[in-house]
Amino acid sequence: MIELEYVLFLSAVLFSLGLFGVLARRNAVMILLAIELMLNAVNINLVAFTVYLSPDLLVGIIFAIFIITVAAAELALALAIVLRLYRTRSSVNVDEVNLMRW
């Protein structure tokens, strides 16, 4: 029997890993990958809550579907921006893009 807490623990670990990745990387593509990891952690949570707590409503699963959709859209746009960035600056490191500062 898989308890709800086990799934939540897994999700917490994946989310923390994703957060670490977002904060620790300077390559834009790597940051995007870490973000995908975080999104997946969230999706696991949603599915677990739906399946264990309110199986009749299916809200979590439908939300997960929407999140996957939005994640796909986000990634497509983000990668387009990365391509653009690369074309103008020959680099995809976010710490070299710091014009918007004091």
Partner: peptide, 17 residues
């Protein structure tokens, strides 16, 4: 306070987290 505005995405992200 303006020195908080580093222009670096990572700093902002850290603050948010």
């Amino acid at each position: 306070l303006r020195y908080h505005e580093t222009g670096l995405v990572s700093t902002y992200m850290l603050t948010i987290a």
